[in-house]
Write a protein that binds this DNA or RNA. Structure first.
Length: 450
DNA sequence: TCTGGGGTCCTAGGACCC
DNA sequence: TCTGGGGTCCTAGGACCC
């Protein structure tokens, strides 16, 4: 917490709907709902006129149609238009300070202490009023709500207090007086699950939360979360404004209009998702070692399966191949509602460069000990499923046709574990696969995992 | 014909290494 | 030979945010 109210939070009001109303004057003053318009669509943003009828973000569009009157506009998203408008606003924020942290397309923090400003309460109030006016002019009528305070948490709550088109400055020393009457849900990080747990012990407001001991709080909601809430209830928040954070994962997913069962269709969808992910990775010059498949079944049960590779990938074909193999291990009966493909464990290096990075510190392998491509490897006469054999060629997934359903289960820098899903029926010599890439070399002698 | 899509962070257990 | 603990990596799931 700072001594001066130098953190500003801006939240654009009903942003997607506001952009639509700006671009189509006939929609102004009317209820507008933006989001998925298909049978399984949900609402991204409802204009304030639509909220009056109960339409809300994340609600199914079908539900919103039931609630809203005839004459309500239901629109698909035009992301490019929102992005352009967002960039206009972010540029105005950067005129205030070099320290601007965009949280999402319609939200940002600004560290006013990094700019040249009068940080008194009247000073920042005038600054915010001027900012709001300039946003409205530059965007053609989109409004925003501003909160200013001594920390991110207080600024964010301030921007919520007076929506839409609001302006709230929380003076230093007034933080607890503002926070404590509010419901715990007002704090970032308190969602339905945490709120329910707190409600069960009679904690409804942030003031109630303030009376809990650190021990009680951490035993209720976990170590990190509990410690965080304990501090937030005291307005003890020193999180800095961060200008640009590196992405940690890239993913794409799709909910189908109808549940899918056809294997060829599923394979094609995985390929399409992998292509979206791979091309985004390539555009941003990153690649990642962990590929994750997400599956939502007909009954909405959702699961993920992932595999971490020895090398980072950005090639859609490789990503699709791994995701497709992961799909082979999940129960598809009844049909799939959604598929998703993601890559995480990102690093800024191109694939070749990255491999050089990780290969460098690897153990030196005597040529005599290295496995020759194609060389038979003795398997233990072990009939049980489980980790069985490790043979590694960089970049090469190892699957032994002799063993039927075996597939690459895990991998480290210098080995790959092949796991078998059923009893092995053909113990004996197994041929390792040969890597196509002439740059790849065997890096580790065969090694048994008992 | 309830329940999107893109993310982040945390937890817990097991494997593995020292 | 038995016992033990800490640290890291990986996987899976869950809560949360916009």
């Amino acid at each position: 917490m700072r001594r001066e109210p130098s953190i500003l939070h801006l939240d654009l009001d009903a942003f997607f709907a506001a952009v639509e109303q700006r671009d189509k004057p006939s929609l102004r003053g009317r209820p507008v709902v933006v989001g998925g318009t298909g049978g399984r669509g949900v609402v991204s943003t409802a204009s304030y006129e639509a909220r009056a009828f109960g339409a809300r973000s994340a609600m199914s569009t079908i539900e919103a149609r039931r609630l809203c009157p005839a004459g309500t506009a239901f629109l698909g998203t035009r992301f490019a238009a929102y992005k352009r408008t967002s960039e206009v606003v972010m540029a105005l924020l950067r005129e205030l300070s070099p320290l601007v942290e965009p949280v999402s397309i319609d939200e940002a923090y600004v560290d006013l202490a990094a700019g040249d400003h009068d940080l008194s309460v009247p000073g920042v109030t005038a600054l915010a009023a001027d900012l709001k006016a300039r946003i409205a002019v530059a965007t053609g009528g989109v409004t925003g709500s501003v909160g200013i305070g001594t920390s991110k948490a207080v600024a964010k709550i301030g921007s919520e207090l007076d929506k839409p088109d609001g302006l709230t400055v929380v003076p230093p020393g007034q933080e607890l007086a503002v926070l404590h009457p509010l419901p715990v849900r007002a704090l970032g990080g308190v969602g339905p699950a945490t709120a329910e747990r707190l409600a069960q012990i009679g904690v409804k407001t942030i003031g109630d939360l303030h009376r809990l001991s650190l021990v009680d709080l951490t035993s209720l909601v976990g170590q990190a979360h509990g410690a965080g809430l304990y501090r937030l209830a005291r307005a003890d928040d020193d999180r800095p404004v961060i200008t640009d954070r590196e992405a940690k994962s890239v993913s794409a997913e799709e909910t189908f209009a109808r549940d899918l069962t056809d294997p060829a269709r599923l394979a094609a969808e995985i390929q399409a998702l992998a292509t979206r992910v791979g091309s985004r990775l390539q555009r941003s010059g990153t690649s990642g070692r962990t590929v994750t498949l997400k599956v939502r079944r007909y009954d909405f049960s959702t699961l993920t399966r992932s595999q971490t590779l020895a090398h980072a990938v950005d090639d859609p074909r490789q990503i699709a191949e791994i995701a497709h193999r992961l799909l082979g291990a999940v129960d598809r009966s009844g049909g799939l509602r959604l598929l998703g493909v993601g890559v995480s464990g990102l690093s800024p290096y191109a694939q070749g460069d990255l491999f050089a990075e990780v290969a460098e510190p690897a153990e030196v392998v005597e040529p005599a000990d290295a496995v020759e491509p194609g060389e038979p490897v003795e398997l233990p006469a072990d009939p049980a499923p489980g980790p069985a054999v490790v043979v590694w060629y960089p970049g090469q997934d190892v699957v032994h046709p002799e063993l039927g359903s075996g597939w690459v289960w895990g991998s480290g820098l210098n080995r790959v574990t092949v796991r078998f899903e059923g009893p092995r029926t053909t113990p004996g010599p197994v041929r390792t696969l040969v890597a196509d890439d002439p740059d790849l070399q065997p890096a580790d002698p065969p090694d048994w995992t008992p």
